[in-house]
Design a binder for these strands. Sequence first.
DNA 1: AAAACTGTAATAAAATTATTTACAATATAA
DNA 2: TTATATTGTAAATAATTTTATTACAGTTTT
Lengths: 136, 136
Amino acid sequence: MNNGRFAIALHILVLLDKAQGELVSSEWLAGSININPAMVRKELISLRQHGFVQSKEGKNGGTSLAKKASDISLGAIYESVRQLSLLGHQKNTPNPQCPVGKNINTHLNNLYNDTERVLIDQLNKQSLADFSAKFG
Amino acid sequence: MNNGRFAIALHILVLLDKAQGELVSSEWLAGSININPAMVRKELISLRQHGFVQSKEGKNGGTSLAKKASDISLGAIYESVRQLSLLGHQKNTPNPQCPVGKNINTHLNNLYNDTERVLIDQLNKQSLADFSAKFG
DNA sequence: AAAACTGTAATAAAATTATTTACAATATAA
DNA sequence: TTATATTGTAAATAATTTTATTACAGTTTT
C-alpha cells in the first residue's frame, strides 16, 4: 500500500462516532488529528462519496456518520483510500525480451491481488464500532 | 506498505533461480528488470544480508542463490524489504489532548501488526520455487 | 448583512524513492 | 604483470508522490 490516508480516514470516523450524530466541523476534526482543515475536507469528499458520512454546509454545518458504525467495516474504509495495488509497482517496465521480465507483472499482479484480498478479509473482521470501542 | 523494492527483489531472485547456480552479473539482472545496475547492487546488499544470495567479486564474478528456492518463502522476501509498518503513518502526531488522538497510534499499530501478520502468512504459502515455476 | 461553515482548486513544500555517476577494491585471464 | 570485468559503496541528483497551505466562492444560520 501507500496510504497515510487510512489513518486519517479512520481517525475522522472514530471522532464522528464519538460525536454521536452531532455535526462536527472540519476545523475541529483537524485539531484532533493535527493536520490542516483542508486535508480533512479533502478526505471527507471521499468518505462522503463512499457513503460513510454526510455533511451539511453553511453556518453550524459539519459532518456526521451516514450509517451505523457497526455497518462500516475497516476493510471498506481501506478500500476507500487505497489507490494502487498493495505492494506498489506502478512504474514497473521490465524488459519484454526476457522471459521472466515479459511475464513478471502478470504474476506479481496475481500475487498482489490474492494478498490484498486476504488483507481486506482480515480488516473486515472489525467494524468501525469495534475499533471505536477501544477508545473507552 | 510502500515498497517497489519487493518487485525488484523478487525479480532478481527469480532470475537467479532460473540461472541454476551460474553466477549472474548485476548488469545482466538490471537488463531484465530495466533498471540501473547500481540499484540492483543496492538490493543485492540486502538480499545478501538476509542470506538469500551470495556474491563473488572480480572478473567473472556475480551472484547466485545462497539457498534452495524452495527454502525461501515470499513472506521472508517481503520482510527483507519492508521498512515501516504496512499502512504507513510514520509522521502521525495527533493531538494528545484529545482522548481519541491520544490513543489512536497505539490502536492503529495493533491493527497494522495484526493485519501484516496475516499478510505475511499469506505470502508464506508460496516459496520462491513456486513463484518461479510460473515462468515455465 | 455578518458570521461560520463547506467545497474545491491551485500552488507550494516536504518527503520519499529512484537514478545516475563515480571510483576503489577485487579477481580473472591474457 | 597488466588489462579487464566485476562487485561494493557512497554521494549527488532527479523524479515522483505525498502532504500542507492558501485562497476564495458558495451555503446556511443568526
